[in-house]
Nucleic acid binder design. Structure first.
Length: 463
RNA sequence: GGCCCCGUCGUCUAGUGGACUAGGACGCAGCCCUCUCAAGGCUGAGACCGCGGGUUCGAAUCCCGCCGGGGCUACCA
């Protein structure tokens, strides 16, 4: 489908700082950024912190950190300002109150004094009578005189609400089915349904790109924009949801893989996560699977976005991450590896990289492969002929230059002379050096260790 | 319950009436390479296109019904 023309493309993401930064936030941020960059538009970050109960400043920090790590940089936001500041909803409360007052004055909203219990009773009654629930409008029809605490409720005008979705085409909703909903909570804060469209309009957002969970919310928000006589966004795009293995929407509580920081901690490359996220719910229509960010900017389009939710799959992510690691420049890989290997210097990491590269799915995988360099493993108990082979190897490498290649030559020579498989010689050495059955190739395993340490570990096993 | 979205190999997907004996990728299996583990190469298994009706000479592709999944329906976002 054609992307509607807009003189000035302005998009935004509006995460809530209610816990760790979410994978879904990264996903929608990515699509927003891609669209902004390819249309030379502006990408804004707005913090939707109207939930007094659950918001925390440190969670907001986590959002900055996570998106920054992924390289999904915003042009406007609470931390860097912009022409539509402030970008934190908690700092825009006056605006919402002002608009709520206007709607009240215009008779497009009304005060609701109902308690949570009364509302709950209404809802239960409707369910009991098996009819769809809509607020009864009792506070519109016959407001109680003796109460002071109130919320502001929108008087839903009903009728048809139509809008354009860049993925699904023309959408039509029947607003007669929508009950009057809350605009301002009794704590004086706006609800998401109110604050979000007000800000989108005030910030001149041209395209609202967000998760599919908001598709049904769109008519609510459009009615508010209309009631306020604001201009509507040019178009919406509701992206398919990222689903967990169980098929449900990824949730913070149930699915730890929704935590963005997890990926950084385990050593997934931001490039790889971006690559994977792009492919979850979108495809290029070509066999290409590995994409840089710039390539994505060139080829991404909403008409190739999936309509159905996509399940998150570690295996595919692992593969993409491995591809990125293998393709990475050695020096750059050293730089990325550094935080995972605080006990090693760059020179050592650099020497390990050629052998390491094809053996890592994620950066943290380097640790079990190299930890014998800074820890002293238990000496293994070996058979007599294994000890003999270590002795032979020991003699053979005694005066060899301490590099993988000459070590390889010397070692294969003695191994082949033994008449049995090379493994019979290499495995005892591996065990003596690392205490493990799995390690880098034996020449690297030796060469990475200082010669005296290596020889000492062999000597104590083979006497 | 109501409304909305969706339904192709285990997973991500190609496919928009005939080139489909349904293609690719991940994963899986086997073989090759090989000092372990990977990487790499080759081969293979795996989808009666959710089900049932139509329309059509012809349907994964169009229509209807059903079933299944997800989302929204909060003084959460």
């Amino acid at each position: 489908m054609e992307v509607p023309e807009a003189a000035n493309v302005r998009v935004r993401i509006a995460p809530s700082p209610t816990g760790f930064a979410h994978l879904g936030t990264a996903s929608t941020a990515l699509y927003n950024v891609l669209f902004a960059r390819q249309s030379r538009g502006t990408f804004a970050l707005r913090i939707d912190d109207t939930d007094q109960e659950r918001n925390r400043p440190e969670y907001e920090q986590l959002i900055y950190e996570s998106l920054g790590w992924l390289g999904l940089n915003w042009d406007e936001g609470p931390d860097r300002g912009g022409p539509y500041a402030p970008y934190r909803q908690s700092e825009r409360v006056d605006l919402y109150r002002q608009y709520a007052a206007k709607l009240l004055a215009d008779g497009k909203a009304y005060k609701c004094f109902c308690t949570a219990e009364e509302l709950e009773a209404e809802r239960r009654q409707a369910q009991f009578e098996k009819r769809p629930y809509k607020y009864s409008r009792r506070c519109l029809i016959d407001p109680p005189k003796d109460r002071t605490e109130f919320a502001v409720r929108f008087k839903v005008p009903g009728g048809e609400v139509k809008f354009k979705d860049m993925i699904r085409g023309e959408m039509v909703f029947d607003a007669d089915l929508i009950g009057d909903f809350i605009l301002m909570k009794s704590d004086g804060f706006p609800t998401y349904q109110f604050a979000s469209p007000v800000d989108d309009a005030a910030m001149k957002i041209s395209h609202v790109i967000r998760g599919e969970e908001h598709l049904s919310n769109t008519p609510y928000q459009l009615m508010i924009i209309d009631a306020l006589a604001y201009e509507r966004p040019v178009a919406y795009a509701h992206m398919p949801l990222i689903l967990a293995k169980d098929g449900a929407k990824l949730s913070k509580r149930k699915h730890p893989e929704s935590n963005l920081m997890l990926y950084r901690e385990q050593g997934y490359l931001p490039e790889a996560l971006i690559n994977y996220l792009a492919l979850l719910g979108w495809n290029p229509g070509t066999p290409q699977e590995i994409f840089t960010f710039d390539e994505l900017v060139k080829v991404f389009s909403f008409d190739r976005v999936q309509h159905a939710g996509a399940r998150f799959d570690w295996e595919k992510l692992n593969w993409i991450n491995g591809e990125w690691i293998r393709a990475m420049d050695d020096a750059e890989l050293v730089r990325r590896l550094r935080p995972f290997l605080p006990d090693l210097d760059d020179a050592t990491i650099m020497r390990a990289v050629p052998a390491l590269k094809t053996r890592m799915v994620k950066l943290a995988d380097a640790v079990p492969l190299l930890d014998y360099l800074w820890t002293d493993p238990e000496p293994p108990v070996l058979e007599p002929d294994a000890i003999d082979r270590i002795k032979a190897a020991f003699a053979a490498i005694q005066d060899v230059r301490w590099e993988p290649e000459p070590l390889h030559e010397a070692l294969t020579r003695v191994a082949d002379e033994s008449g049995v498989s090379r493994n019979k010689t290499f495995m005892p050495i591996r065990l003596s050096l690392t205490g493990k059955k799995i390690s880098l190739p034996i020449d690297y395993t030796l060469a990475l260790l200082p010669k005296d340490v290596a020889m000492q570990r062999l000597r104590r096993v083979a006497g």
